[in-house]
Design a protein around this nucleic acid. Structure first.
Lengths: 121, 121
DNA sequence: TCTATAGAGTACCATTTGGTATCATGTCAA
DNA sequence: TTGACATGATACCAAATGGTACTCTATAGA
């Protein structure tokens, strides 16, 4: 259901993964993020757009600034996708996955789009 | 420690993710894999090389054939990386991650390269 | 041995991607 | 109001990417 491609694409670049790490510490403006990289603000901005396309960050305009906030929940579908391989890997993952899905359904209404292990992208 | 980039890169393409799915059912030769796609064998072969670079598949030459086998263990570092964001997501992930890491250290000697949550790529 | 077949390797092409440079717009603050 | 500043938008460039076509090598089998 959820389109995984924009998320996987966003995660495919090391700069963008670094940005996610930084935003994990606290929300940042574009200027603050780009201070941490040896590239122009415009380049950083492009990465932020890709991250936003993948739903991994949320951008809020505050006056003349744009505050970028991590949305780690968007990593869930990736986790679920990886989880479909758990039978080759570690069976305990399966138990955890079910638990989280069940919980999500009850508590947050989050729909993983994951059901019987069939393709979802 | 482990270089995540080749794995994330390999996962960034939908065709390659589909190939992983197929190889999850059973090992396949290049011809068998490409029978499932509307593209040339050469193109599929390129994808298989990228998957191999990421360690996600293992290629074994058998006579004039090349059998491609899924290596789902290479997904572990990605899982670990996502796990470093679990405090924003679901705290129970943390418990699972520790359990698996502990188990991996004891049973398989697998080193996640994950320690205190500091950057690892 | 001969031939069809599986795959490797290479050259080439169009598109996407990561990046810079430049200019436009909106807002804070004196 | 006016100037400095944060961001947005666009044009442009080089390199990487996804793909095809074609050639070459090696092996399975009649």
């Amino acid at each position: 259901m959820t389109d995984l491609q924009p998320v996987f694409r966003a995660l495919g670049d090391p700069t963008r993964r670094d940005i996610l790490r930084m935003l994990g510490d606290s929300p940042m403006t574009i200027a603050q993020v780009s201070d941490n990289f040896d590239m122009t603000r415009a380049a950083v901005k492009k990465h932020l757009v890709v991250l936003s396309d993948g739903g991994l960050i949320h951008v809020e305009k505050r006056g003349r600034e744009a505050v970028n906030t991590l949305n780690a929940a968007a990593l869930r579908p990736v986790f679920d996708w990886i989880g479909t391989f758990d039978r080759f890997w570690d069976t305990r993952l399966d138990a955890l996955k079910s638990a989280i899905e069940k919980d999500a359904a009850n508590d947050t209404g989050y729909d993983t789009g994951y059901d019987t292990g069939k393709s979802n992208d």
